[in-house]
Design a protein around this nucleic acid. Structure first.
Length: 508
DNA sequence: ATAGGGTTAG
């Protein structure tokens, strides 16, 4: 419904634009920005080009509008073209254009280019500092962001809320927790702790650091947490294993009379999917239906995943069939769901369908496909998809893909081939890949190779005990009782895992 | 002119 409103407005705006005989630069800028905001990037670009042959000349704001469109559309070529024009118009040193360039390049992960633009400015203003710090932070270069933050303060420039948001977004991992705490301290001292944006990024920062107690504490300190902040907290719980808490806080927010939006609903569905009981998930589904957003791509995709993980593939398929718009994530969810149920043929068909429709399969698509092959033991198909992934679709193989390939080849009994595959990888090899091979050795009771693999794992992660259990089991299976006992004794002193128990909840 | 939360990846 919202989309129609935006489109209707856009159409009226365009009519007005077309009827105006002498268009000012403001009018041009507004219409380009409107198209960019509605994600109609090709229209925005077409108008941008039209403008150059009109009587009105672009100004620095025109470029910011079109740069935003380029970056949101991941249009690298357009980006270079526009940058070129910015230079031609002598606006590269303009404070408005330069910060737009820095942001756009950073968004495209071209931090190097962003830095180039930044370094050409001798006296950056606050917005430019902020843009560059944000660029470093969002690009994973937290250290450079921090350096820049320090040099900014050294020359006496006062940071503002934007600066800190950019800086905090660079704290992406548990090992950066202390850095994050330091920045949090700075926020408190400088009185930024009541800023809604900073509150929400702090909550998600602590979530990324797996410190949900701190995230919760920041949340409780806010007098009026808004939807985004609630959402950050619920998502934090969803992603760190606090599934019950995700639901508790979601319900608490609803009880306070607030309305959830598609982003939050998708997030809380992740928690219900992990709980693997369908009741809470279908409750959220009903909520989405009542609030008219069950057909949003994000919600529907999450529903497909939830239903299939909770044992109701048919309901997931029904959501899939009835949803009005799909994206690559939707298809990936559907492929992994089919794979999860051992329906490899159907998963392959869906892959063919998305290629026919012109979607670009991504790394998750191939994860889902290779996983389906593993479940169904289809070695030949797996090899094919692995090859096509690299050759035909130019998707780089990542750790997860190698894990699947090792499992697929190794489980079929070709332990040597799996071993050779790992040997061919650049060092250091992720221990997850070695672990995959170890589980193949377990299944095929090959204790000789298992020893070699375990040695590799021991060098990588001596503190982990799971693979020692596996090695001991392999020894035991081969009747090598002394070896089995030695490895067991080795674990005994370390923190031992409790034996697993499981149960099935009653179905009414 | 700059900012925050999101769905797949068993």
């Amino acid at each position: 419904m919202q989309f129609y409103a935006i489109n209707d407005d856009l159409i009226s705006a365009r009519n007005l634009f077309d009827k105006t005989p002498h268009r000012s630069v403001y009018l041009w800028n507004s219409i380009i920005r409107a198209y960019a905001k509605a994600h109609k990037f090709s229209d925005a670009f077409w108008l941008f080009k039209q403008m150059f042959s009109s009587e009105t000349m672009p100004d620095n704001f025109t470029f910011t509008c079109i740069l935003r469109a380029c970056s949101e559309n991941y249009d690298f070529e357009g980006m270079r073209l526009v940058h070129g024009r910015v230079i031609v118009w002598g606006l590269e040193l303009d404070s408005i254009c330069s910060s737009a360039l820095v942001r756009a390049y950073s968004k495209l992960d071209l931090v190097h280019e962003a830095t180039g633009v930044f370094n050409r400015i001798t006296e950056p203003d606050l917005v430019l500092w902020n843009s560059m710090i944000w660029g470093y932070g969002s690009g994973g270069h937290w250290d450079k962001g921090l350096q820049l933050f320090n040099s900014m303060r050294r020359i006496g420039k006062q940071p503002d809320g934007y600066t800190l948001v950019g800086l905090i977004s660079g704290v992406v991992d548990q090992c950066l927790l202390e850095i994050g705490q330091g920045i949090h301290g700075f926020c408190l001292k400088s009185g930024f702790d009541s800023n809604a944006y900073i509150g929400s990024v702090l909550v998600s920062m602590y979530s990324r650091c797996k410190c949900m107690n701190s995230a919760r504490r920041v949340f409780y300190c806010l007098s009026q947490p808004d939807l985004v902040t609630w959402s950050a907290l619920v998502t934090g719980f969803s992603q760190t294993g606090g599934y019950k808490n995700a639901l508790v806080f979601f319900k608490r927010m609803i009880m306070e009379g607030r309305k959830a939006d598609p982003l939050l609903i998708a997030s809380v569905l992740v928690a219900t999917a992990q709980l693997a009981t369908v009741d809470p998930g279908s409750e959220i589904h009903c909520y989405a239906v009542r609030h008219g957003c069950s057909s949003e791509v994000m919600v529907s995709s999450a529903l497909i995943d939830m239903y299939s993980k909770c044992g109701f593939l048919g309901l997931g398929v029904r959501v899939f069939k009835t949803m009005p718009t799909r994206n690559i994530i939707t298809y990936n969810s559907m492929i992994s769901s089919l794979g999860l149920y051992g329906l490899a043929t159907e998963a392959f068909e869906m892959f063919g369908e998305i290629v026919d429709k012109g979607y670009r399969p991504d790394e998750s698509t191939f994860s889902a496909l290779l996983c389906s092959c593993c479940h169904a033991g289809l070695v030949k198909d797996g090899r094919d998809y692995f090859r096509r992934m690299k050759d035909e679709f130019e998707v780089q193989a990542k750790t997860e893909h190698y894990v699947y390939m090792v499992k697929l080849v190794g489980m079929s009994g070709e332990l040597e081939e799996a071993y050779d595959l790992i040997q061919s990888l650049p060092k250091p090899v992720d221990s997850g890949i070695w672990e995959a091979l170890l589980s193949c050795c377990d299944v095929h009771q090959n204790s000789e190779l298992a020893e070699i693999v375990a040695q590799q794992l021991f060098e990588n992660k001596p503190e982990k005990t799971t693979y020692k259990v596996m090695l001991s089991n392999i020894y035991a299976g081969n009747g090598r009782w002394d070896d089995a006992k030695n490895v067991r004794d080795d674990i005994a002193g370390e923190n031992r895992k409790m034996a697993g128990i499981s149960w099935i909840s009653g179905v009414k």
